[in-house]
């Protein structure tokens, strides 16, 4: 059984008029099926209004399906009695770092979730220290969160999630408001959690270079999964992505331009390393013969 099993998920937003009658029905998700295995690093990309955030909100039972099922670690999200257990299993990091920090001291902020779960003090201290170390923020533990940069705040928010030892972490455009260094810090921390701790990661993003770091990408469009596969498989289909208002990473786009100019760059380039390697290979193989 997969860690997360989303089967034929439908979700309708219903707006009611002043008499409480259903006025407008908007279908945000239309038959989405996604399986996530333990230890996976999944990226979900899609245009504004494609249903990405609605999908994410189903994974920790903030929203409940109007059709189909969402099962997280064998727990059905539509059952009220499962909600607490599901939220312990699936931790969510949101977009705005300032809305997620509540403690006046960083270590207190990280401990907040643990206190709510009733974790004993000794265990709590241990977990706070471990999780702040994991995101590289331990040296700030006794300081105030107010003076941190956006990237540092997001890493503290991630530490708060990590401390609760969830099995899956969902990041809903968590780097959208950060400067370049902040984005890199957060992505590196997430990648390390996935590699070193085996944390399952679901990353929702508008940045194609971030999605390229995942093992598998799902493309949502108008509430449906239109593509899924490795970054290589997805970014190969660059024309189709454009129809879904998306792009490919810069390295992949440059590879396409070079192929158009008759340079034999292979298909399926997704990042800088691969492109630089490929161009070096071409030069050493072809010399002046292109």
């Amino acid at each position: 059984m997969s860690l997360v099993e989303v089967k034929d998920l439908f979700y309708e937003y219903r707006e009611r008029d002043e008499n409480g009658e259903v006025d407008i029905v908007t279908t945000a998700l239309e038959g989405v099926s996604v399986n996530v295995e333990k230890g996976d690093f999944i990226a979900i990309i899609g245009s504004n209004g494609s249903g990405k955030s609605t999908f994410a909100k189903h994974l920790n039972a903030i929203l409940k399906p109007t059709g189909g099922t969402v099962i997280v670690r064998s727990l059905d999200t539509s059952l009220e009695e499962n909600t607490l257990e599901i939220r312990k299993t699936a931790g969510m990091v949101f977009q705005n770092p300032d809305n997620q920090i509540i403690g006046s001291i960083i270590e207190e902020d990280v401990a907040f979730g643990l206190e709510n779960l009733g974790v004993p003090t000794d265990e709590m201290k241990k977990r706070v220290k471990e999780s702040l170390k994991t995101v590289g923020m331990w040296e700030y533990a006794s300081g105030s969160p107010n003076r941190l940069s956006g990237g540092q705040k997001q890493r503290v928010a991630i530490a708060g999630i990590v401390a609760m030892k969830p099995e899956v972490m969902i990041l809903d455009e968590s780097t959208a408001m950060l400067d370049p260094r902040g984005r890199k810090e957060v992505l590196d921390a997430v990648e390390e959690l996935n590699k070193e701790e085996g944390m399952t990661v679901i990353l929702i993003t508008h940045y194609m270079d971030e999605a390229a770091r995942a093992h598998k990408i799902f493309v949502l469009h108008e509430g449906q999964v239109k593509m899924s596969g490795t970054p290589e498989e997805v970014f190969k289909r660059h024309k189709e992505l454009k129809e879904y208002k998306l792009k490919v990473p810069v390295a992949a786009e440059l590879a396409v331009r070079l192929r158009e100019k008759g340079i034999p760059v292979r298909e399926g380039i997704t990042n800088d390393d691969e492109l630089v390697q490929e161009i070096s290979r071409i030069r050493s193989e072809h010399g002046t013969g292109i």
Partner: peptide
């Protein structure tokens, strides 16, 4: 200072260091 260069600049700099 916490910033970066455009993606295309980063790639071309790396290629340049390889003589391309």
């Amino acid at each position: 200072v916490g910033l970066s260069a455009p993606g295309i600049t980063v790639i071309t700099e790396r290629l340049k260091s390889l003589g391309i």
